[in-house]
């Protein structure tokens, strides 16, 4: 049990270490994306303080870009998972490599979905 836990933590550690491997271009790119993430975090912090009004939504337009992005990404995730189908129907071995990317995209899209619906809630702490 303990051995398994240690093994798993080593696995996670190595995965994290992968994040910091790359040349200056990689770090520039990841840094830019991280800056945008921080900006999103800031925007969400402001929304928590002032309420959803700062998104410009009103009773007349009560669902905005959050929900639009959510439904879009649900579609992306579903489609990415569906990549499995041709692999099994046509027994196309080469497509197996692509399926891995599909699943990764699906996981990423689902994470974004969860983030978007949570951000859209007026009372996220109750959910």
């Amino acid at each position: 049990m303990i051995a398994a836990a240690r093994k798993y933590s080593r696995f996670v550690g190595r995965c994290l270490a992968c994040l910091f491997e790359g040349d200056w271009r990689y770090f520039l790119w990841v840094g830019a994306l991280a800056a945008i993430c921080a900006l999103g975090l800031n925007a969400y912090a402001r929304q928590l303080v002032h309420g959803l009004a700062i998104t410009g939504m009103t009773d007349h337009v009560s669902w905005g870009v959050y929900i639009a992005n959510f439904t879009f990404l649900v579609g992306v995730a579903a489609a990415a998972v569906m990549l499995v189908i041709p692999v099994y129907i046509y027994h196309n071995e080469d497509l197996h490599d692509l399926v891995i990317f599909g699943e990764l995209l699906a996981v990423a899209a689902i994470l974004m979905c969860l983030a978007f619906v949570t951000v859209d809630l007026g009372r996220p702490e109750r959910f």
Partner: peptide, 18 residues
Amino acid sequence: CIGCRYCEAACPYFARRF
């Protein structure tokens, strides 16, 4: 209430306010 505004979208009389 968690504030998802589903009910506001469902109401045909525009009776709910957020």
